[in-house]
């Protein structure tokens, strides 16, 4: 074992013994640091939580149910644009969020019904095409969507709130709560019979069906859940950034989302936050080599895929458990 490995192992064993304390410190930090961090940094962290939510839409269908889907960007966009149109029409932000989630979930359900009958690369391509069509459609109907220049988004909560607490702080806590709740929900779901059914279908569809699992139903379920999660993220993202445009929701974003899932570990729910952190924060950190940024990203992706099959989340889990 190299010196690096020995050091890492030492650090990990220390961390293991102080696990409770560390978790407590982490929780405290998460609650307190909005008051410590600079507002731009806070904005970035909040964005990490958004992507953490989005990463679940890679973890659940791709990691657990074994479906290659590429339409996360479009679902993200449907959530965002639905929020904007609803709030612009007068619906309070708090109500617009769940409606946006339902609308996105509904779209995913309708698309998923025929689409999840295909599998393998075909499902991937259908969802890829859907994502591309969505973005193109946004550009083709500017009267409704603001076209390629985009559209402004109203705030989530009534203005009165922002007079008391700065909006960055409000959104931080909102996204923190949303992420934690969704994470706990998924941990429960994926540890349940449903999660087991997903894995069985991924493993071997024929065998799963022979013991009575309706593969199509579960595939559709995982697809719809992915859509709903993206819809939630989108409906929170729009008021967070205040402005949305079609390029935010293109195929590149779907890929980023899946990357976040892979880097965090596709079978490791908590990995979502690590993957999200890398995808959101790394480009910023690599800013100084901006020309080579994407190249470095590409190399990083390949290296992680080949050498870290369980992602960062899985790696940590193996060390710290």
């Amino acid at each position: 074992m190299s010196a690096i490995e020995v050091t890492v192992e030492r650090a990990a064993s220390v961390a293991r013994s102080y696990r409770r304390t560390l978790l407590g410190a982490l929780a405290l930090m998460l609650l307190v640091w909005p008051f410590v961090l600079q507002s731009s940094m806070l904005g970035n962290v909040t964005l990490v939580f958004v992507f953490g939510l989005l990463a679940f839409s890679a973890i659940v269908p791709i990691g657990f149910a074994g479906q290659l889907i590429l339409s996360q960007g479009a679902f993200f966009g449907i959530g965002a644009y639905t929020f904007v149109k609803l709030t612009a029409a007068g619906l309070p932000g708090i109500a617009a969020v769940p409606v946006a989630v339902v609308v996105t979930a509904g779209t995913a359900y309708v698309l998923g019904w025929p689409a999840t009958r295909a599998s393998g690369i075909y499902l991937g391509i259908i969802t890829l095409a859907f994502n591309e069509l969505f973005v193109i459609a946004l550009n083709l109907f500017p009267a409704f969507t603001g076209g390629s220049t985009g559209i402004r988004s109203p705030q989530l909560l009534p203005d009165a709130v922002y007079d008391v607490v700065p909006s960055e702080v409000v959104y931080y806590y909102l996204l923190l709560v949303a992420f934690v709740l969704v994470y706990l929900g998924f941990r429960r779901l994926l540890g349940s019979r449903i999660g087991w059914a997903f894995l069985s279908i991924k493993e071997n569809k024929t065998v799963a069906e022979s013991i009575g699992i309706d593969a199509h139903r579960y595939r559709l379920l995982s697809f719809t859940i992915a859509g709903a999660t993206c819809g939630l993220a989108g409906s929170l993202y729009a008021p967070l950034t205040g402005y949305i445009s079609p390029t935010v929701f293109n195929l590149s974003t779907s890929i980023d989302i899946i990357l976040a899932g892979i880097i965090g570990g596709l079978l490791v729910p908590i990995g979502s936050i690590f993957g999200a952190a890398v995808v959101v924060l790394l480009p910023d950190l690599l800013r100084f080599i901006s020309d080579f940024r994407l190249t470095v990203f590409g190399v990083l992706l390949i290296v992680v895929l080949i050498y870290l099959p369980e992602g960062i989340g899985g790696w940590l889990r193996d060390r710290l458990d």
Partner: peptide, 10 residues
């Protein structure tokens, strides 16, 4: 698929 995506990026 993703490895080839990475190759394409590079």
């Amino acid at each position: 698929f993703f490895v080839t995506f990475g190759l394409s990026l590079v």
